[in-house]
Design a protein around this nucleic acid. Structure first.
Lengths: 353, 353
DNA sequence: CACGGACTTGCACATCCTTGCAAACCCGAT
DNA sequence: ATCGGGTTTGCAAGGATGTGCAAGTCCGTG
């Protein structure tokens, strides 16, 4: 009964032996200089004679050497890697965001470490895990982030940017669609259409995107003299939206128009309306989504929605990242990028005749 | 006119100063042991007295220390990170695959470095870049991979697994759907439906998935005494499929049934048929896809398709990875996982009466 | 009590790179 | 020929850890 810690299966397997990854020493010998000089050859702006530089580079090419970034990071504290914590990877909008980030980060010669984090605790874990790997920055696209992980990141000077998420903590940089204004625009649109009994199909309850869209929507309805919307839970998913719309329409006081927290749940609601309930859109019910994923433009859906400017948001995030990485003490950067109402055919534009 | 190499903007910014990430030395001092002992405390199976282990762990907890994986990797040659090279990130099937991989790898306590690589050269670059970061293995989900990168990986003993891709090189491990058999199954289905003039809407021409699906389809048609299919290019995309179907149907000899290289292009074809051409599916034309993405089940599409067993494929990949990481000299592992024909309403099942 | 064996531990070197400092060098000027 | 200034370069220390080897400890046995 000794310590049960050992775990023979985890024993490190020998990497194949003969494998020669060249190191700076080999290059130094070949070029007839010291290792320091090799290092300087690969450090932009370091003091080195042009002719020596060329000799080192030639040797490096011959051995196809390039500095080991992990060893370099030990001392430079930079890994040229950013961490990406993804929340709801089933939403096509975020899938596009993900590929936007990876391809653009690649173009800036930055590696990206992905983590998926469905719930708050795992966001914590993910951030911590990324920090241990010395990422230069962290992008979080996920519902909640408690201040603990943020604090740790700050302590080691690693910038964190929230993408389409807000928390109470004011000290955080973030880039988001102006979700509140998006919600207000939808209220205006539906009001113009002459709808009076409105409903909102919630996304995830504690996601700030969801809260802000609903808040803007409700706020503007109030200003227009309309009652607050009925609420149902759609969970940001197709199935959720499809079930939610049934509950709404079969309830006591069915709405004339429904605003869905995102496009996917709107597709569900749309299908629920026409296939489950036999209703027509927008003749019987108007429907609006949020995101403008590519599918929203397909004729089968033709969904009126609020476009999130994905590329612009991604660019803004990366630009902010650049600034924050240069100066970790810089005050937080905020971007609220206006959405754009994309009018298609799922919502009536004028009061029914 | 000196060497123009320097690039002041890249100068490394000082990480915030006071930040104290504890190192093994601090733990060693606190626990009253040497650094080696601390190291052993964190190495499963290493020789250490239980009481010492506990003392070290207590000290580590107090300082919230854990070994720096980057420094560790310098000597152990393991980073607990795998590289993931993604090909066509716009296809929802691969998006699900991606999240499948990241979440499952996380569960195995492995980090994942993502790269996107639209074309062959960038696959090369991505693999090389990942190798420099010392990943323990590479998963490639992308059209082509030339033997150069594979050779380099092999040379340093890093296993590579191709996901849903094949190359001529027999020495590669891979996991894929049995695309050829999938194609054959579709041929049988359409034959049963009484269709005789068939077409295939290509995906990307040099993707092995596409070639194999087409090969199986054509082969089986031949066995059934049917002529080879008409061909059009759909590029694996919605727009591609939608254009392709128009060219097919407006050509001299329109087909009675169309097999699309994947679901997305099938959606495009479907919409082309009903919205652009005013035809009905399956009454006028039968349509079959490949993948079984979630949308295929939506009533709006109701697409007959071949399901790729995503979870099973991902699991098989990770299991193979485990084996290969333990023993880099192990012969290549192959998995050909049968697809499953999912019959819905987009293809006629019996000859038209 | 001394000895052998098994188990623990520390030393020192290894991994691979960066960088402050000081020595060496070059070249023109005195 | 000597000096000074600026440039280049190497040394050695530093970053954080893993590990072979040998020394040390402990315990049971003869």
């Amino acid at each position: 009964m000794t310590a049960p810690l050992d775990d023979a299966s985890r024993t490190r397997p020998g990497r194949k032996a003969g494998a020669a990854v060249p190191n700076s020493d080999a290059v130094a010998r070949l070029a007839g200089v010291s290792r320091s000089t090799v290092s300087r050859a690969f450090t932009p702006g370091a003091s080195i004679a042009p002719v020596t530089l060329e000799r080192v580079m030639a040797a490096a090419r011959e051995l196809s050497y390039s500095p080991n970034p992990l060893a370099r990071s030990l001392i430079s504290r930079r890994t040229d890697t950013v961490g990406l914590v993804m929340g709801h990877p089933e939403n096509p909008f975020y899938q596009e965001v993900l590929t936007g980030f990876t391809s653009r980060l690649q173009r800036r010669d930055l590696r990206v470490m992905c983590q998926t984090a469905p719930d708050i605790e795992s966001v914590e874990d993910s951030v911590r895990s990324l920090l241990r790997y010395n990422v230069d920055a962290v992008i979080v696209t996920s519902s909640g982030i408690t201040s603990a992980a943020v604090g740790e990141a700050h302590a080691v000077g690693v910038p964190i940017i929230l993408f389409n998420r807000t928390v109470e903590d004011d000290a955080l940089s973030r880039v988001q669609t102006d979700n509140r204004r998006g919600g207000r625009a939808v209220a205006d649109l539906l009001n113009h259409g002459g709808h009076r009994r409105l409903a909102y199909i919630n996304g995830l309850e504690n996601a700030s995107t969801n809260r802000d869209r609903l808040a803007g929507f409700t706020e503007r309805l109030g200003e227009l003299g309309l009652p607050p919307p009925l609420l149902e839970y759609g969970e940001y998913s197709y199935e959720g939206g499809r079930e939610a719309i049934k509950r709404l329409m079969l309830g006591g006081d069915p709405p004339e128009a429904v605003f869905c927290a995102n496009d996917i749940s709107a597709f569900g609601a749309l299908d629920g309306l026409r296939y489950d309930l036999g209703l027509r859109v927008p003749d019987d019910v108007s429907l609006v989504g949020f995101d403008d994923v590519p599918m929203a433009a397909w004729p089968c859906f033709d969904l009126t929605t609020v476009r999130q400017r994905r590329n612009q948001m991604v660019e803004a995030t990366l630009d902010s990242l650049d600034l924050l990485m240069r100066d970790p003490d810089r005050p937080p950067i905020r971007h609220d990028i206006p959405g754009r109402l994309i009018v298609r055919r799922s919502a009536r534009l004028a009061p029914a005749g």
